[in-house]
Simulated assay, not measured.
Amino acid sequence: MISLQQALEQIGATQLTVLDFSSTTWQLFEKNNAKLFAKIQQVKPETDVHHHLLGVLTKAHIEVLSQIEADKDSVRAMNSTFKQELGESHAAKFQYQDGQLLLLITHIWIYLQGYLAMDFSLANDHAENSATMLVGIQGGNAEQLRSEFMASFYLARGQKTQFTNPILCWLKKIFQ
């Protein structure tokens, strides 16, 4: 049995430069999901750990999207008040925790979908939904954010090849 952190390291997700795995957002995510990940591995040890990881990330994504949807009017009002009272530059210093969590989860989730060679259009739809939600509450460019999520998808496709391509492994052994 491996930890949530180890599972992400195994697939190369911890090298995503857009994420900070030492942040409080990551620590919160890991704290809230590590026990579930461990329990799933115990209940179904014959299932690939990456599929367990996909299930945990899917659940976490649904939960944070649901939370943001429920709070979006309040968050928009809060952001508007900050901008009016503090100005644009000071208001930008405040970070919406659930928004940061959605950003983290979506990058990892989309990355894993790429790693597992899942359908591009499904990953793209998920990336678009997350980007639209985040931009709706925090502002920004939804297309740019969707593209950043999909960059994680393509990075994972390259990582999977790098880690599991038998020809590359064979060549690596020869030249070491």
Rank of each mutant, 00 (worst) to 15 (best):
M1V: 02
Q5G: 00
Q5L: 06
Q6I: 02
Q6V: 01
Q10H: 09
G12A: 01
T14I: 15
T17C: 05
T17Q: 11
L19P: 01
D20A: 04
F21C: 03
F21D: 00
T24Y: 05
Q27V: 02
N32R: 14
N33Q: 09
N33T: 09
A34E: 13
K35S: 10
A38S: 08
K39S: 15
K44F: 10
K44S: 13
K44C: 07
E46N: 02
E46G: 00
T47V: 15
T47P: 00
H50S: 10
H50K: 14
L53C: 01
G55A: 10
V56Q: 02
T58F: 02
I62V: 15
V64S: 04
Q67P: 06
I68D: 05
I68H: 03
E69V: 09
A70R: 15
K72N: 09
V75A: 03
V75I: 15
R76P: 04
N79S: 04
S80N: 07
K83C: 01
E85R: 10
G87I: 02
A92I: 03
Q95A: 11
Q97C: 03
D98K: 14
G99W: 07
G99A: 03
G99R: 05
L102Q: 03
L103F: 14
L104T: 03
H107N: 05
I108F: 06
W109D: 05
Y111C: 05
L112H: 05
Q113M: 15
G114I: 08
L116C: 01
M118Y: 08
D119S: 14
S121V: 10
L122D: 08
L122A: 08
A123V: 07
N124S: 13
D125S: 15
H126V: 14
A127C: 04
E128I: 14
E128V: 15
E128P: 04
N129H: 05
S130D: 06
S130A: 15
S130I: 09
T132A: 12
V135M: 01
G140F: 01
Q144S: 08
R146H: 12
S147I: 09
E148D: 13
E148G: 03
F149L: 11
A151M: 12
Y154C: 06
L155G: 09
A156R: 02
G158A: 10
T161D: 14
T161L: 13
T161W: 07
I167K: 07
L168A: 11
L168E: 06
C169T: 15
W170Q: 06
K173W: 04
Q176E: 12
